[in-house]
Design a binder for these strands. Structure first.
Lengths: 228, 228
DNA sequence: GAATTATTCGAACGAACGTTCGAATATAAA
DNA sequence: TTTATATTCGAACGTTCGTTCGAATAATTC
């Protein structure tokens, strides 16, 4: 069974490199409350004020802990950003895979993809905003690792679109690969852009539910996509 | 005739407040090469490394001028970001209005809107990336001014969609206002997300032209939008 | 050419930042 | 209770940052 990366504090000097490579290798989710607390609050602050405008002192104050104490759980601020990004991404993909196991035809699978993405996005708005907005505040190995996840996530969507396109026999006017690439990126644009306008407080218990947004985006997308 | 905001250097202590309010009031574009150079290069650096990761020393080095000399042209780094954002936004809207004067039916006007947006986006990729990505690095009055432009730009698109929706007689299943809001924001998502994947060097003189991207996005969008 | 104005500059200031270190405290193991 | 381990902390270090200031230079006006 697939899981998100194991996250444990302490002895990071020895454990860090292993964590980077052991990703997706473990069997159970090791839960360490304090670190998740840190990731959660940090994501909130990063989403609210931006990564570079949030100081470690801000984070320490938010968590009612000491500045130096934070560094027991990670080695650098950049690693903190990486951990937030990695955990969010792994969670979305994990949740998606669970739902895809019981989803049938290509179109339904696309529905599942969009709804899963939007659902996770708005219920973890801070973390996903950070993931969408600050991913090139990462550098080096951190950047590469998150970028690889992005590419594989995009690949999942592109494969779905390929299935859908093949299912209908019309010859497309455009080269299929190109059409699928632009389509997939457009769909991601629709979905990810929500972080700039979706307000969970404003929309909670209101008529504009995730289900409605998800349905309309799929409609908007699918009719255009299927119409040559 | 509408123009972009007048931009002149020097005596900023007196001239600044006036510039903020005189926006769109002048008749001709006052051109001051050096300041445009600064805005252009700064936009490049901001797009490349992010606003907060670009220091005034970096910018001075890029322009082969002194650090202190920069402050002759603006008062704070934040004002510099504001000037970039304002000039870009005004230019897009100005260019759009020129093209809309000679565009007929609602659907064609939507085509013009999308093509104008994407065209300006990719030919001024740095500045537009900054505008899309760093606009909430602004605060106070700066933020409000750019936000107001954003809202009015969104309103233009929503009005177009309203015209299109009215032109066809089908009763929509969803409340029209809501449908138009989500549709407009989805379309902006498609377009603005391009800054994360469009590579001008890679796509220059290649098969993936702006016209093709624009056409496909309009197709993708319109067929879904018109289909209830 | 003198006077005025516009533009550039070197040097420095104070503040904020990420990070480190050794000591202190809490927790668990023996 | 003693020992070992896990966690927190105050204080400080070195760096980088945006910004300022008064002087120097260039351009323009008279």
């Amino acid at each position: 069974m697939e899981t998100v990366a194991e996250i444990v504090p302490g002895k990071r000097h020895q454990g860090f490199k292993q964590m980077l490579t052991q990703d997706h290798a473990g069997e159970s989710i090791h839960y360490h409350g304090k670190l998740y607390d840190i990731l959660d609050r940090a994501a909130m602050l990063f989403a609210q004020n931006g990564y570079h405008n949030t100081s470690m002192r801000d984070l320490a104050a938010e968590l009612k802990t000491s500045l130096a104490g934070l560094y027991y759980y990670f080695e650098t601020k950049e690693e903190l950003l990486f951990l937030i990004s990695q955990y969010s991404f792994d969670s979305v993909i994990l949740s998606l895979n669970e739902k895809l196991n019981q989803a049938g035809d290509p179109v339904e699978r696309l529905n599942v993809f969009v709804h899963n993405h939007l659902q996770y996005f708005v219920t973890h708005l801070s973390a996903m905003k950070v993931l969408s907005h600050e991913s090139d505040s990462l550098s080096g190995e951190y950047f590469e690792l998150i970028n690889a996840k992005k590419k594989s996530y995009l690949q999942i969507l592109e494969n779905m679109l390929l299935d859908i396109a093949r299912a209908q026999s019309n010859q497309p006017h455009m080269r299929l690969n190109q059409k699928i690439k632009i389509s997939a990126l457009s769909l991601f644009g629709m979905m990810n852009w929500t972080y700039t306008w979706f307000n969970p407080d404003k929309h909670k218990n209101q008529s504009l539910s995730i289900q409605k947004i998800s349905d309309q985006m799929v409609n908007l997308f699918l009719h255009g996509f299927l119409k040559d």
